[in-house]
Amino acid sequence: MQAALDYGRRGFSIFPCSQDKAPLTEHGFKDASPDLRKIRQWWTQFPDASIGISCIASGLIVLDTDPRNGGLHTLQALEQEHEPLPITLTALTGMQNDCRGTHRYYRAPEGDIKVKGQLGEGIDCKYSGYVIAAPSQHQTGVNYQWIDEYQPIADLPKWISDIIIKKPAKAPRRRTSAGHGDSITDQYNLRVQDYLMPENGRYISSDEIRGAHPAHGSSTGNNLCINIRKNTWYCFRHQTGGGGVEAYAVARGIIDCSEAGAGCLNNKWSEFFRCLREDGIITPTEADPEILASIDALIQKWRRLQACQN
């Protein structure tokens, strides 16, 4: 408990996780807090819990370098192309072939930003999710360990910001009639890897990445697969999946991962578009009557087909 309380005193928003990184609170990393009373309650209830740090709530972007997936080579190439990373608060993570991964903590830029899921192969960017912190135990058996626990946290380097901070989306093209035009996924550039990038993901082919589900964790570290080229995902725990729309809906908590699939957003489209507006993906005047009308038309068509089949 003392380590968890120390994080709270330093202003980190934390929450308890199981040994397989799964959140132990009802709403996962969204429950994270620096409040010492909450932290005491959580670690009294879960005394052996790992410590999860909510990156976005703590104002952090964490670069997760995984040597198993070529992260060290990617980082070396990027530093040669740009400049060396500044010294910052850094933790050692898992052990693989006598080589450990790292979490480098940086201050996130101010404002409402959107962060890509990867800096490059083997380097994940943690912002909308969470990371496990020292002295929690990693799945490889070693403990997360600070290189210098009180090293100041540096600002995110500009060259990294230029790569991973997504530019504001262009105004989407309007649909001309119900059921025609670009899909919602294409229209608003909803990419699976931006919302459901697997934790500690590794490439299993040129297009597919497999790892732990960022929303509900994984006991195996291997329960989510995304296909970047096809813009699709599949959760092996719930046997559900979809495309960019479903990935966004799961990441934003509009639906649970177990609900993803055909018709999962019936009666939830208003909340879906409200979230798009809140996130700045669309402006308040976009996507209201015309797109909602097209969605209603598609839903009615789907219901008629279901009725015919029954």
Rank of each mutant, 00 (worst) to 15 (best):
I184L: 15
R229W: 08
K166T: 00
I184G: 02
T232K: 12
H216W: 06
G242F: 00
W159L: 06
Q239H: 07
I165F: 02
N231G: 09
F236K: 06
W233C: 06
H213C: 14
A169T: 04
P157V: 04
R173Y: 07
T176Y: 13
I228C: 14
W159K: 07
T185P: 02
H238F: 15
H180V: 09
T185Q: 14
S219E: 11
G241D: 04
A169M: 11
R175S: 11
G243I: 01
Y203K: 14
P157N: 07
Q187F: 03
R229H: 12
C225V: 15
Q151R: 14
G211V: 01
D155T: 11
D162V: 04
S183M: 09
A171M: 08
T220A: 04
Y188W: 06
D182K: 14
S177A: 15
P214E: 06
M197L: 10
R174W: 05
G211F: 02
F236P: 00
A171W: 04
Q239I: 00
R175L: 12
L156H: 11
N231Y: 07
E149G: 07
A171K: 14
E208Q: 15
I209R: 05
D186Q: 13
N231K: 06
S205I: 09
A212P: 09
A154E: 04
P168R: 08
T240C: 10
Y203R: 15
G244R: 03
H213F: 07
K166C: 06
I164M: 02
G241R: 02
E149S: 12
Y188G: 00
K230V: 00
M197K: 06
A154V: 07
F236C: 00
I160M: 06
Y188V: 03
H216N: 13
T220R: 09
A178N: 13
E149F: 03
Q187P: 01
I228Q: 14
P157Q: 03
V245H: 01
R210V: 12
P152V: 06
S161R: 14
N189P: 01
S161P: 04
A154Y: 01
S183N: 09
L190Y: 01
P172R: 13
E208K: 15
D182H: 09
T232D: 09
K230D: 13
